[in-house]
Design a protein around this nucleic acid. Structure first.
Length: 454
DNA sequence: CTATGGCACGGATT
DNA sequence: AATCCGTGCCATAG
Protein backbone atom coordinates (compact mmCIF):
# COMPACT_ATOMS: atom_id res chain seq x y z
CA UNK A 1 0.00 0.00 0.00
CA UNK A 2 1.68 3.14 -1.14
CA UNK A 3 0.75 6.57 0.02
CA UNK A 4 0.18 7.71 -3.50
CA UNK A 5 -3.01 5.86 -4.04
CA UNK A 6 -4.56 6.95 -0.78
CA UNK A 7 -7.01 9.77 -0.91
CA UNK A 8 -7.05 12.59 1.58
CA UNK A 9 -9.26 10.81 4.08
CA UNK A 10 -7.22 7.62 4.03
CA UNK A 11 -4.00 9.53 4.36
CA UNK A 12 -5.40 11.37 7.34
CA UNK A 13 -6.07 8.10 9.10
CA UNK A 14 -2.65 6.80 8.30
CA UNK A 15 -0.96 9.89 9.66
CA UNK A 16 -3.06 9.87 12.77
CA UNK A 17 -2.04 6.30 13.45
CA UNK A 18 1.62 7.04 12.87
CA UNK A 19 1.48 10.01 15.18
CA UNK A 20 0.09 7.98 18.01
CA UNK A 21 2.50 5.09 17.51
CA UNK A 22 5.69 6.88 16.73
CA UNK A 23 7.09 9.24 19.33
CA UNK A 24 9.68 10.58 16.92
CA UNK A 25 7.01 12.10 14.73
CA UNK A 26 5.81 15.55 15.60
CA UNK A 27 3.02 17.70 14.35
CA UNK A 28 4.10 21.31 14.12
CA UNK A 29 1.91 24.32 14.64
CA UNK A 30 -0.05 25.26 11.64
CA UNK A 31 1.06 28.23 9.62
CA UNK A 32 -1.55 30.48 8.14
CA UNK A 33 -1.40 33.07 5.47
CA UNK A 34 -2.11 36.36 7.17
CA UNK A 35 -4.16 37.57 4.23
CA UNK A 36 -6.46 34.76 3.25
CA UNK A 37 -6.04 32.55 6.31
CA UNK A 38 -5.22 29.50 4.33
CA UNK A 39 -3.19 27.01 6.23
CA UNK A 40 0.08 26.53 4.48
CA UNK A 41 2.15 23.44 4.46
CA UNK A 42 4.98 24.23 2.13
CA UNK A 43 7.41 26.82 3.39
CA UNK A 44 7.41 30.18 1.69
CA UNK A 45 4.76 32.76 0.93
CA UNK A 46 1.15 31.97 0.31
CA UNK A 47 0.83 31.15 -3.39
CA UNK A 48 -2.56 32.81 -3.66
CA UNK A 49 -1.85 36.13 -2.05
CA UNK A 50 1.65 36.67 -3.33
CA UNK A 51 0.80 35.88 -6.92
CA UNK A 52 2.65 37.78 -9.58
CA UNK A 53 0.78 40.56 -11.32
CA UNK A 54 1.41 39.28 -14.79
CA UNK A 55 -1.14 36.51 -14.78
CA UNK A 56 -2.49 36.13 -18.27
CA UNK A 57 -5.44 33.97 -19.10
CA UNK A 58 -3.98 32.56 -22.27
CA UNK A 59 -1.19 30.87 -20.47
CA UNK A 60 -2.79 30.20 -17.19
CA UNK A 61 -0.52 30.24 -14.22
CA UNK A 62 -1.43 27.40 -12.00
CA UNK A 63 -1.22 27.92 -8.31
CA UNK A 64 -0.97 25.16 -5.87
CA UNK A 65 -1.83 25.65 -2.30
CA UNK A 66 -2.05 23.01 0.31
CA UNK A 67 -4.60 23.46 2.96
CA UNK A 68 -5.66 21.20 5.68
CA UNK A 69 -8.71 22.63 7.34
CA UNK A 70 -11.27 21.63 4.83
CA UNK A 71 -12.00 18.02 5.61
CA UNK A 72 -12.00 18.16 9.36
CA UNK A 73 -13.87 21.39 9.61
CA UNK A 74 -16.50 20.24 7.23
CA UNK A 75 -17.00 17.01 9.06
CA UNK A 76 -17.44 18.56 12.45
CA UNK A 77 -19.48 21.32 10.93
CA UNK A 78 -22.00 19.16 9.24
CA UNK A 79 -22.87 17.41 12.46
CA UNK A 80 -23.58 20.38 14.65
CA UNK A 81 -25.82 23.17 13.55
CA UNK A 82 -23.69 25.96 14.84
CA UNK A 83 -21.35 27.39 12.29
CA UNK A 84 -19.75 30.20 14.24
CA UNK A 85 -16.20 29.02 13.95
CA UNK A 86 -16.27 28.41 10.28
CA UNK A 87 -13.29 30.18 8.78
CA UNK A 88 -14.04 33.25 6.73
CA UNK A 89 -13.03 32.23 3.29
CA UNK A 90 -14.60 31.83 -0.05
CA UNK A 91 -15.78 28.31 0.58
CA UNK A 92 -18.02 29.07 3.47
CA UNK A 93 -20.42 30.80 1.16
CA UNK A 94 -20.82 27.69 -0.91
CA UNK A 95 -21.30 25.28 1.92
CA UNK A 96 -24.61 25.42 3.69
CA UNK A 97 -25.51 23.70 6.82
CA UNK A 98 -27.63 20.82 5.61
CA UNK A 99 -30.59 20.77 8.02
CA UNK A 100 -31.35 24.45 7.76
CA UNK A 101 -30.74 24.41 4.05
CA UNK A 102 -33.42 21.79 3.62
CA UNK A 103 -35.76 23.36 6.10
CA UNK A 104 -35.62 26.67 4.32
CA UNK A 105 -36.96 25.05 1.17
CA UNK A 106 -39.82 23.10 2.66
CA UNK A 107 -40.91 25.32 5.52
CA UNK A 108 -43.98 26.53 3.72
CA UNK A 109 -45.20 23.09 2.80
CA UNK A 110 -45.10 21.78 6.33
CA UNK A 111 -48.18 21.88 8.52
CA UNK A 112 -47.48 23.47 11.91
CA UNK A 113 -48.27 20.26 13.77
CA UNK A 114 -45.60 18.44 11.79
CA UNK A 115 -42.82 20.83 12.61
CA UNK A 116 -41.43 18.76 15.44
CA UNK A 117 -41.29 15.72 13.26
CA UNK A 118 -39.42 17.62 10.58
CA UNK A 119 -36.97 18.94 13.11
CA UNK A 120 -36.43 15.47 14.44
CA UNK A 121 -35.78 14.05 11.00
CA UNK A 122 -33.51 16.82 9.83
CA UNK A 123 -31.30 16.63 12.86
CA UNK A 124 -31.04 12.86 12.58
CA UNK A 125 -29.60 12.87 9.09
CA UNK A 126 -26.23 11.26 8.76
CA UNK A 127 -23.33 12.72 6.86
CA UNK A 128 -24.64 11.38 3.61
CA UNK A 129 -28.03 12.97 4.00
CA UNK A 130 -29.67 9.64 4.64
CA UNK A 131 -31.92 8.89 7.56
CA UNK A 132 -30.48 6.16 9.73
CA UNK A 133 -33.39 5.91 12.14
CA UNK A 134 -36.31 3.77 11.12
CA UNK A 135 -39.66 5.31 10.43
CA UNK A 136 -41.18 3.15 13.11
CA UNK A 137 -38.85 4.54 15.73
CA UNK A 138 -39.71 8.08 14.84
CA UNK A 139 -43.41 7.43 14.73
CA UNK A 140 -43.34 5.82 18.15
CA UNK A 141 -41.36 8.70 19.55
CA UNK A 142 -43.90 11.24 18.38
CA UNK A 143 -46.95 9.05 18.98
CA UNK A 144 -48.19 9.39 15.44
CA UNK A 145 -48.90 6.77 12.80
CA UNK A 146 -45.99 5.82 10.51
CA UNK A 147 -47.99 7.01 7.53
CA UNK A 148 -47.67 10.56 8.74
CA UNK A 149 -43.92 10.24 8.99
CA UNK A 150 -43.94 8.85 5.49
CA UNK A 151 -45.88 11.82 4.25
CA UNK A 152 -43.44 14.27 5.79
CA UNK A 153 -40.49 12.35 4.42
CA UNK A 154 -41.99 12.43 0.97
CA UNK A 155 -41.86 16.22 1.07
CA UNK A 156 -38.35 16.31 2.45
CA UNK A 157 -37.04 13.91 -0.12
CA UNK A 158 -38.01 16.16 -2.95
CA UNK A 159 -36.07 19.07 -1.55
CA UNK A 160 -32.49 19.66 -2.54
CA UNK A 161 -30.25 17.82 -2.32
CA UNK A 162 -32.84 15.59 -3.89
CA UNK A 163 -33.31 12.34 -2.04
CA UNK A 164 -32.24 13.75 1.30
CA UNK A 165 -33.92 11.97 4.17
CA UNK A 166 -34.29 8.71 2.33
CA UNK A 167 -34.01 5.66 4.49
CA UNK A 168 -31.93 3.80 1.95
CA UNK A 169 -29.68 4.35 -0.99
CA UNK A 170 -32.30 2.82 -3.25
CA UNK A 171 -34.92 5.24 -2.10
CA UNK A 172 -32.62 8.20 -2.61
CA UNK A 173 -31.88 7.09 -6.15
CA UNK A 174 -35.53 6.48 -6.93
CA UNK A 175 -36.51 9.91 -5.73
CA UNK A 176 -33.85 11.53 -7.85
CA UNK A 177 -34.95 9.50 -10.82
CA UNK A 178 -38.52 10.56 -10.30
CA UNK A 179 -37.63 14.23 -10.17
CA UNK A 180 -35.28 13.92 -13.11
CA UNK A 181 -38.01 12.27 -15.17
CA UNK A 182 -40.11 15.39 -14.86
CA UNK A 183 -37.71 17.49 -16.84
CA UNK A 184 -35.96 15.07 -19.16
CA UNK A 185 -36.15 11.58 -20.50
CA UNK A 186 -34.63 8.95 -18.31
CA UNK A 187 -33.39 5.51 -19.04
CA UNK A 188 -36.37 3.17 -19.21
CA UNK A 189 -34.75 0.41 -17.19
CA UNK A 190 -33.25 2.62 -14.54
CA UNK A 191 -36.10 2.30 -12.11
CA UNK A 192 -36.23 -1.47 -12.14
CA UNK A 193 -32.48 -1.68 -11.97
CA UNK A 194 -32.49 0.32 -8.75
CA UNK A 195 -35.52 -1.37 -7.27
CA UNK A 196 -34.54 -4.91 -7.96
CA UNK A 197 -30.91 -4.94 -8.87
CA UNK A 198 -29.22 -2.67 -6.39
CA UNK A 199 -26.94 -5.43 -5.16
CA UNK A 200 -25.64 -6.15 -8.60
CA UNK A 201 -25.54 -2.51 -9.51
CA UNK A 202 -23.26 -1.52 -6.68
CA UNK A 203 -20.97 -4.44 -7.37
CA UNK A 204 -20.89 -3.81 -11.07
CA UNK A 205 -22.17 -7.28 -11.76
CA UNK A 206 -23.73 -6.35 -15.04
CA UNK A 207 -24.23 -9.86 -16.33
CA UNK A 208 -26.34 -10.73 -13.29
CA UNK A 209 -28.17 -7.46 -13.59
CA UNK A 210 -28.99 -8.21 -17.20
CA UNK A 211 -30.39 -11.59 -16.26
CA UNK A 212 -32.48 -10.08 -13.51
CA UNK A 213 -33.94 -7.41 -15.75
CA UNK A 214 -34.31 -9.77 -18.66
CA UNK A 215 -32.36 -7.55 -20.97
CA UNK A 216 -29.10 -7.70 -22.84
CA UNK A 217 -25.75 -7.14 -21.26
CA UNK A 218 -25.19 -3.89 -23.09
CA UNK A 219 -28.58 -2.62 -22.00
CA UNK A 220 -27.64 -3.35 -18.42
CA UNK A 221 -24.36 -1.54 -18.79
CA UNK A 222 -26.01 1.45 -20.36
CA UNK A 223 -28.50 1.55 -17.51
CA UNK A 224 -25.77 1.43 -14.94
CA UNK A 225 -23.92 4.17 -16.70
CA UNK A 226 -27.00 6.34 -16.80
CA UNK A 227 -27.56 5.89 -13.10
CA UNK A 228 -23.96 6.58 -12.29
CA UNK A 229 -23.84 9.72 -14.36
CA UNK A 230 -27.12 11.25 -13.29
CA UNK A 231 -27.92 10.08 -9.80
CA UNK A 232 -26.12 10.27 -6.52
CA UNK A 233 -26.66 7.55 -3.94
CA UNK A 234 -25.65 9.83 -1.12
CA UNK A 235 -27.59 13.07 -1.43
CA UNK A 236 -25.56 15.15 0.97
CA UNK A 237 -22.23 14.38 -0.56
CA UNK A 238 -21.38 17.27 -2.73
CA UNK A 239 -24.52 19.05 -1.77
CA UNK A 240 -22.69 22.26 -2.27
CA UNK A 241 -22.94 23.49 -5.80
CA UNK A 242 -24.86 21.68 -8.45
CA UNK A 243 -27.44 19.19 -7.26
CA UNK A 244 -26.98 16.81 -10.09
CA UNK A 245 -23.66 15.31 -9.37
CA UNK A 246 -21.62 13.30 -11.74
CA UNK A 247 -20.24 10.17 -10.28
CA UNK A 248 -20.38 6.54 -9.84
CA UNK A 249 -23.09 4.24 -8.69
CA UNK A 250 -20.76 2.26 -6.49
CA UNK A 251 -21.11 3.30 -2.90
CA UNK A 252 -17.57 4.56 -2.76
CA UNK A 253 -16.61 7.10 -0.22
CA UNK A 254 -16.34 10.40 -1.78
CA UNK A 255 -17.74 12.89 0.50
CA UNK A 256 -15.04 15.34 0.21
CA UNK A 257 -12.88 16.08 -2.73
CA UNK A 258 -9.15 15.63 -2.59
CA UNK A 259 -8.53 18.56 -4.85
CA UNK A 260 -10.33 21.81 -5.58
CA UNK A 261 -10.20 23.58 -8.90
CA UNK A 262 -11.47 27.08 -9.40
CA UNK A 263 -10.58 30.23 -11.29
CA UNK A 264 -8.61 32.64 -9.17
CA UNK A 265 -10.92 35.62 -9.05
CA UNK A 266 -14.10 33.86 -9.94
CA UNK A 267 -13.68 35.20 -13.46
CA UNK A 268 -13.32 32.53 -16.07
CA UNK A 269 -10.53 34.53 -17.62
CA UNK A 270 -8.26 34.28 -14.63
CA UNK A 271 -5.82 31.50 -13.98
CA UNK A 272 -6.93 28.31 -12.35
CA UNK A 273 -6.16 27.56 -8.76
CA UNK A 274 -5.46 24.03 -7.75
CA UNK A 275 -5.87 23.32 -4.10
CA UNK A 276 -4.64 20.01 -2.89
CA UNK A 277 -6.46 19.30 0.30
CA UNK A 278 -4.30 17.76 2.89
CA UNK A 279 -6.08 16.64 5.98
CA UNK A 280 -3.32 17.27 8.46
CA UNK A 281 -3.32 20.33 10.62
CA UNK A 282 0.12 21.82 10.55
CA UNK A 283 3.37 20.35 9.40
CA UNK A 284 4.88 16.99 10.14
CA UNK A 285 8.51 16.70 11.13
CA UNK A 286 10.86 14.60 13.13
CA UNK A 287 10.85 15.87 16.68
CA UNK A 288 14.27 17.45 17.24
CA UNK A 289 14.03 16.87 20.96
CA UNK A 290 13.58 13.21 20.36
CA UNK A 291 16.73 13.19 18.25
CA UNK A 292 18.74 14.83 21.01
CA UNK A 293 17.53 12.47 23.65
CA UNK A 294 18.64 9.59 21.52
CA UNK A 295 22.19 9.86 22.87
CA UNK A 296 21.08 9.18 26.40
CA UNK A 297 18.76 6.43 25.38
CA UNK A 298 18.80 3.34 27.54
CA UNK A 299 20.69 0.42 25.99
CA UNK A 300 17.67 -1.68 25.26
CA UNK A 301 15.77 1.16 23.63
CA UNK A 302 18.37 2.66 21.37
CA UNK A 303 17.58 0.47 18.38
CA UNK A 304 13.88 1.01 18.66
CA UNK A 305 14.30 4.75 18.87
CA UNK A 306 16.57 4.84 15.91
CA UNK A 307 14.03 2.88 13.96
CA UNK A 308 11.34 5.30 15.00
CA UNK A 309 13.29 8.23 13.68
CA UNK A 310 14.02 6.38 10.52
CA UNK A 311 10.39 5.62 9.99
CA UNK A 312 9.29 9.15 10.71
CA UNK A 313 11.76 10.45 8.20
CA UNK A 314 10.55 8.02 5.63
CA UNK A 315 6.93 8.88 6.16
CA UNK A 316 7.59 12.57 5.76
CA UNK A 317 9.55 11.98 2.61
CA UNK A 318 6.85 9.79 1.18
CA UNK A 319 4.16 12.33 1.92
CA UNK A 320 6.19 15.03 0.27
CA UNK A 321 6.73 12.87 -2.73
CA UNK A 322 3.08 12.02 -2.90
CA UNK A 323 2.05 15.64 -2.80
CA UNK A 324 4.65 16.51 -5.33
CA UNK A 325 3.45 13.91 -7.80
CA UNK A 326 -0.14 14.91 -7.38
CA UNK A 327 0.83 18.52 -7.79
CA UNK A 328 2.79 17.94 -10.98
CA UNK A 329 0.02 15.88 -12.40
CA UNK A 330 -2.69 18.38 -11.55
CA UNK A 331 -0.75 21.24 -13.05
CA UNK A 332 -0.53 19.33 -16.26
CA UNK A 333 -4.15 18.27 -16.24
CA UNK A 334 -5.48 21.67 -15.28
CA UNK A 335 -3.53 23.35 -18.05
CA UNK A 336 -4.61 20.84 -20.65
CA UNK A 337 -8.20 20.56 -19.52
CA UNK A 338 -8.82 24.17 -18.70
CA UNK A 339 -11.78 24.38 -21.05
CA UNK A 340 -13.32 21.25 -19.66
CA UNK A 341 -12.95 22.43 -16.11
CA UNK A 342 -14.51 25.79 -16.80
CA UNK A 343 -17.00 24.99 -19.52
CA UNK A 344 -18.05 21.43 -19.08
CA UNK A 345 -17.99 17.96 -20.53
CA UNK A 346 -18.02 18.94 -24.17
CA UNK A 347 -14.50 20.31 -23.93
CA UNK A 348 -12.78 17.36 -22.37
CA UNK A 349 -9.63 16.47 -24.27
CA UNK A 350 -9.23 12.75 -24.59
CA UNK A 351 -6.01 11.77 -22.89
CA UNK A 352 -4.60 8.62 -21.44
CA UNK A 353 -2.73 8.09 -18.21
CA UNK A 354 0.16 6.82 -20.26
CA UNK A 355 0.49 10.14 -22.08
CA UNK A 356 0.45 12.10 -18.87
CA UNK A 357 3.08 9.80 -17.45
CA UNK A 358 5.28 10.31 -20.47
CA UNK A 359 4.84 14.05 -20.31
CA UNK A 360 5.84 14.17 -16.67
CA UNK A 361 8.55 11.60 -17.04
CA UNK A 362 7.17 9.18 -14.51
CA UNK A 363 6.06 5.60 -14.75
CA UNK A 364 2.50 5.18 -15.85
CA UNK A 365 1.56 3.16 -12.83
CA UNK A 366 2.47 6.22 -10.81
CA UNK A 367 -0.23 8.16 -12.58
CA UNK A 368 -2.65 5.29 -12.21
CA UNK A 369 -2.15 5.31 -8.49
CA UNK A 370 -2.29 9.05 -8.20
CA UNK A 371 -5.61 9.03 -10.02
CA UNK A 372 -7.30 6.07 -8.41
CA UNK A 373 -9.77 6.73 -5.68
CA UNK A 374 -9.38 10.49 -5.77
CA UNK A 375 -11.95 13.12 -6.47
CA UNK A 376 -11.86 16.67 -7.71
CA UNK A 377 -14.28 19.47 -7.15
CA UNK A 378 -14.86 21.60 -10.22
CA UNK A 379 -15.70 25.31 -10.16
CA UNK A 380 -19.39 24.55 -10.62
CA UNK A 381 -19.41 22.51 -7.44
CA UNK A 382 -19.55 19.12 -9.02
CA UNK A 383 -17.36 16.54 -7.45
CA UNK A 384 -16.08 14.09 -9.99
CA UNK A 385 -13.76 11.13 -9.72
CA UNK A 386 -10.40 11.90 -11.23
CA UNK A 387 -10.83 9.04 -13.66
CA UNK A 388 -13.21 11.29 -15.52
CA UNK A 389 -10.29 13.31 -16.82
CA UNK A 390 -9.32 10.20 -18.71
CA UNK A 391 -12.73 9.33 -20.12
CA UNK A 392 -11.93 8.96 -23.75
CA UNK A 393 -15.35 9.74 -25.11
CA UNK A 394 -17.09 11.87 -22.56
CA UNK A 395 -16.91 14.90 -24.80
CA UNK A 396 -18.56 13.01 -27.63
CA UNK A 397 -21.41 11.99 -25.41
CA UNK A 398 -21.85 15.59 -24.34
CA UNK A 399 -21.88 16.75 -27.94
CA UNK A 400 -24.49 14.16 -28.79
CA UNK A 401 -26.61 15.46 -25.96
CA UNK A 402 -26.24 18.93 -27.41
CA UNK A 403 -27.05 17.85 -30.94
CA UNK A 404 -30.21 16.12 -29.84
CA UNK A 405 -31.22 19.06 -27.74
CA UNK A 406 -30.86 21.47 -30.64
CA UNK A 407 -32.31 19.24 -33.32
CA UNK A 408 -35.13 20.67 -35.42
CA UNK A 409 -36.30 17.35 -36.76
CA UNK A 410 -35.61 14.17 -34.85
CA UNK A 411 -32.32 12.81 -36.06
CA UNK A 412 -31.54 9.17 -36.58
CA UNK A 413 -28.32 7.69 -35.33
CA UNK A 414 -26.88 7.83 -38.80
CA UNK A 415 -27.66 11.53 -39.06
CA UNK A 416 -26.17 12.18 -35.65
CA UNK A 417 -23.05 10.36 -36.74
CA UNK A 418 -22.88 12.59 -39.82
CA UNK A 419 -23.32 15.69 -37.71
CA UNK A 420 -20.48 14.56 -35.48
CA UNK A 421 -18.32 13.92 -38.51
CA UNK A 422 -18.85 17.51 -39.61
CA UNK A 423 -17.39 18.60 -36.31
CA UNK A 424 -14.42 16.37 -36.91
CA UNK A 425 -15.43 13.37 -34.86
CA UNK A 426 -15.50 10.20 -36.85
CA UNK A 427 -17.72 7.88 -34.86
CA UNK A 428 -19.38 4.74 -36.13
CA UNK A 429 -23.12 4.77 -36.28
CA UNK A 430 -23.24 1.79 -33.97
CA UNK A 431 -21.27 3.68 -31.39
CA UNK A 432 -23.56 6.67 -31.59
CA UNK A 433 -26.42 4.35 -30.71
CA UNK A 434 -24.53 3.15 -27.68
CA UNK A 435 -23.74 6.63 -26.40
CA UNK A 436 -27.27 7.74 -26.99
CA UNK A 437 -28.54 4.87 -24.93
CA UNK A 438 -26.05 5.62 -22.19
CA UNK A 439 -27.36 9.13 -21.95
CA UNK A 440 -30.88 7.90 -21.58
CA UNK A 441 -31.90 9.41 -24.92
CA UNK A 442 -34.58 7.44 -26.67
CA UNK A 443 -34.23 6.28 -30.28
CA UNK A 444 -35.41 8.69 -32.97
CA UNK A 445 -38.79 7.14 -33.68
CA UNK A 446 -39.73 7.36 -30.00
CA UNK A 447 -38.43 10.88 -29.62
CA UNK A 448 -40.64 12.12 -32.43
CA UNK A 449 -43.73 12.39 -30.23
CA UNK A 450 -41.99 13.38 -27.06
CA UNK A 451 -44.02 16.55 -26.66
CA UNK A 452 -46.74 14.36 -25.24
CA UNK A 453 -44.94 11.98 -22.93
CA UNK A 454 -46.78 9.06 -21.45
C1' DC B 1 -36.63 -1.04 -46.47
C1' DT B 2 -34.59 1.68 -42.58
C1' DA B 3 -33.32 2.35 -37.86
C1' DT B 4 -31.83 0.19 -33.82
C1' DG B 5 -30.24 -3.33 -30.65
C1' DG B 6 -27.40 -7.82 -29.60
C1' DC B 7 -23.25 -10.23 -29.71
C1' DA B 8 -18.71 -10.86 -30.13
C1' DC B 9 -14.12 -9.81 -31.72
C1' DG B 10 -9.85 -7.14 -31.62
C1' DG B 11 -7.21 -3.46 -30.21
C1' DA B 12 -6.10 -0.15 -26.72
C1' DT B 13 -5.46 0.90 -21.92
C1' DT B 14 -4.32 0.00 -17.25
C1' DA C 1 -2.85 -10.48 -17.68
C1' DA C 2 -7.18 -8.33 -17.22
C1' DT C 3 -10.38 -5.06 -18.50
C1' DC C 4 -12.60 -1.67 -21.22
C1' DC C 5 -14.33 0.10 -25.52
C1' DG C 6 -15.40 0.80 -30.46
C1' DT C 7 -17.07 -1.34 -34.26
C1' DG C 8 -18.79 -4.75 -37.78
C1' DC C 9 -22.20 -8.01 -38.86
C1' DC C 10 -26.58 -9.80 -38.35
C1' DA C 11 -31.32 -10.11 -36.43
C1' DT C 12 -35.47 -7.80 -35.59
C1' DA C 13 -38.77 -4.17 -34.90
C1' DG C 14 -41.22 -0.55 -36.97
Amino acid sequence: MTLLHMNAAELAQKIERELSENPALELLEERRCPMCRRRLIDPGPCPICSRPQSSSADEPIVFVSVRDDYLQDYQSQSKSINREEWPEDNLSAAIEDLPSYVLQQIALEIAPEDREIVAHILTSLDEDGLLSQSILEISRYHHVPPSRIEAVLAIIRRAEPIGVGSTSVEQALLTQLEVLAETQSVHPLAERAIREGMNHLSRRQYAELARLLVCSLSEAEATAHFIGANLNPYPARAHWGDFRQGGDSTPQVYHHPDILLYPLDGRTSSPLVIEILSSVRGTLRVNPLFKEVLQDAPENKVDKWKADIEQANLLIKCIQQRNNTIQQMMIFIATLQRAFILQGDRFLQPITRAKVAEELGVHESTISRAVSGKTVQLPNGKIIPMEQFFDRRLHIRAIIRQIVKNERETLTDTQIAASLAKQGHRIARRTVAKYRSMEGILPAHLRRNLTKPA
